[in-house]
Design a protein around this nucleic acid. Structure first.
Lengths: 257, 257
DNA sequence: ATGACTAAGTGCGATAGCAAACAGCACGGC
DNA sequence: GCCGTGCTGTTTGCTATCGCACTTAGTCAT
């Protein structure tokens, strides 16, 4: 759709009506994000909303002893920092970059002005917020009841949905932090998947070879969340609008996060 | 405050401005809830909002094999069924009555009308929604990293905060369903607490004898969620309004849920 | 080429929680 | 008083995961 290679569309921005887009686009900044980068610490005031295009963000709950657990994943289907305009100003979790790439950034205040017009933007963001909550709720049950093997599959599928290819740049160590388990546990699980020919990995490079098989091996949690997200966001968007990508690029400034 | 013994106030209703209360009160129905009763199944359309007074509700994620995990607890500080007016119409979790008592019930449409006025009700409900999300996010990390012993303490504290006394009517079996563990695990943990003199229980009746000790034995999750909830709801409510309880009673009809 | 570093594989004892079964005990209805 | 039902205590394996230590193997900079 765009002749520019780097920034893919963000679906949330794309789903906004044209007039809303017109108001927001002049203030969108294109930012480059590096994997591992921390966008927000837990409790820190969210000053910006990040709309990933080809990057992926993770929301992490970090507990006192330093261990963590991913509670939601945000790619080009969503946004991070929505408390900057939904009230609350901060959230008790950390936001880190899981996969390098780009995101459009918007000062929370601008989005709040739009939110306070009580139009499509409010409705859309509320629905997105609920999709994310569904993901958190499912994560909780998943952490309680499912095996590392199943959870690794779920995590790979979630990532895959947010990436342009079947390849990702991620170490087992990183995944272990996301799932809140030991690195060895991920090594085990990944080894099994590789023996089955479902994935192939090598020093921080994972390729998914057999996605249907991955879906079968995953716990239900992936499908449950996907179904709910589609119900909330995809189905209502038959009336979706196109985002004028070219203009975004003319207006966007490239800034570090 | 009220001369009526049964229905305590719901803090969310109480925090609404007088004019909002005036509009809503004629439509509030007082309902009686029995422990174990299922208010909503996962995915079922939420037709009403429930504002507990002296009852407690649990939001449960039920997975395919039938096991479950509590993702949030709702007492007189909050409400269940908020998707009935925040968009989405349903949520992928079950709502069950954890502790018998009463709740004010309101047809979702009425609340949506209020929500769509974009006044205090919207701001308040958004902040409440975030407090609940914080609880879910913390539950996820808790399920991953903390022991049954710690989680039992957390759960008892959450319940205690929503009850008028230090006594609760709950079997270990029920708690095991909430925490998503086997009953025997709860028996173990509860036995330890009883030996320490922190609680006393007997056939479905639990009394908390030493709350400070319970807080020390609990994982951090209780305190983290409490702090965030207070930040979002208690602190901003210096400007809180009183709810005219008498009128509520005059107007409320007693209906089964 | 060499050495430093990071990613991944492996082995092993410890343990938390699971699965299934059974025994005892209390309350409430008869 | 008797008995059924529901709640709790306990036992015996069993498994997944942990925690730690150590090895192997790519990758990169010099």
């Amino acid at each position: 759709m765009s002749i520019y290679p780097v920034p893919l569309q963000n679906q949330l921005l794309a789903a906004l009506p044209r007039d809303v887009q017109a108001r927001l686009l002049p203030f969108l900044e294109l930012t480059t994000l590096q994997a591992g980068q921390v966008l927000y610490e837990a409790g820190e005031t969210r000053r910006h909303v990040y709309f990933p295009t080809d990057s992926i963000l993770s929301l992490l709950n970090v507990i006192e002893d330093g261990s963590s657990a991913e509670i939601s994943m945000v790619g080009n289907e969503g946004a991070a920092g929505i408390t900057s305009f939904m009230g609350g100003e901060s959230s008790p979790w950390q936001v880190v970059v899981q996969s390098s790439g780009h995101a459009y950034r918007l000062v929370g205040r601008r989005m709040k002005e739009e939110f306070d017009r009580h139009g499509e933007a409010l409705v859309l963001m509320l629905r997105y917020a609920q999709a994310r909550v569904a993901q958190m709720a499912q994560s909780a049950a998943c952490y309680r009841h499912h095996s590392i093997d199943q959870q690794l599959c779920r995590w790979l599928l979630l990532s895959l949905d947010r990436l342009p290819s079947n390849h990702m740049n991620t170490t087992q160590e990183f995944i272990s932090n996301m799932l809140g388990v030991r690195r060895e546990g991920v090594t085990d699980a990944a080894g099994k998947l590789q023996k089955l020919g479902v994935i192939e990995y090598r020093r921080g490079n994972i390729s998914v070879l057999d996605r249907p098989r991955l879906e079968k091996l995953s716990c239900e949690c992936y499908a449950v969340v996907k179904k709910e997200t589609d119900r909330l966001l995809v189905a209502p968007a038959t009336r979706r609008f196109e985002m004028p990508v070219r203009h975004a690029h003319f207006n966007a400034q490239l800034v570090p996060a």
